[in-house]
Amino acid sequence: MQHSEKASTRGRSPEELLRQTARGDASAFEALTRYFAPLVFGVALRVCEDRSLAEEVAQEAFLDIWRTAARYERDRGSAHAWIVTITHRRAVDQVRSERAHARRELHAKALLPMVDFDQVAEAVDEAGDRERLRTCLGVLSRLQRESIHLAFFDGLTHTQISVKLQVPLGTAKARLREGLGNLKSCMGVGEKAGGRA
């Protein structure tokens, strides 16, 4: 399916599609949605663990993108990062209100095996980027890795992370910040704002 997604963008970058979407171009929005559907649905599914919930979250995330595309600023980051953030925020809001509602505690999540970070690196398309991500993930301490993992893939708050990992709240916050900081400098993010062209 990779090739058909690429084809539907007709050579336009995601950033370009987002800019056209901001101007009300419905066909650009459709191409953008088609291009990002596997990522947006995948993030939603990983956090929500329920296909129909994930589809609803994915639709809401895309509608957020449609609604607020004009707020996207290219010099502040890639379309990928903007879209992942919107989707992830939607997904965690969804599971948090659900957990609160159903009074379902974190037990189910706690039993899930951690995603192997090797798989995370494996999913990156370009061999060079993949190697670098793998190396950089290896640089993190166990606590940094687990904290980031619980926040992103399981949608936990820093308070829940501190409980789950049995560390003080201040430690959980610090590990998230340091872990991302390490990945950032290891991967060279930030020097070239806006990501790749």
């Binding site: 649905f41 995948g42 993030v43 994915a58 639709q59 992942v84 992830h88 950032k184 993010v189 990501g195």
Partner: peptide
Amino acid sequence: FREVIAGLARSTATTPPDTLV
């Protein structure tokens, strides 16, 4: 940080339901 996180997110990509788009 969000660029870094977007890199991690790629591992979750999943074929979506046909109806999504």
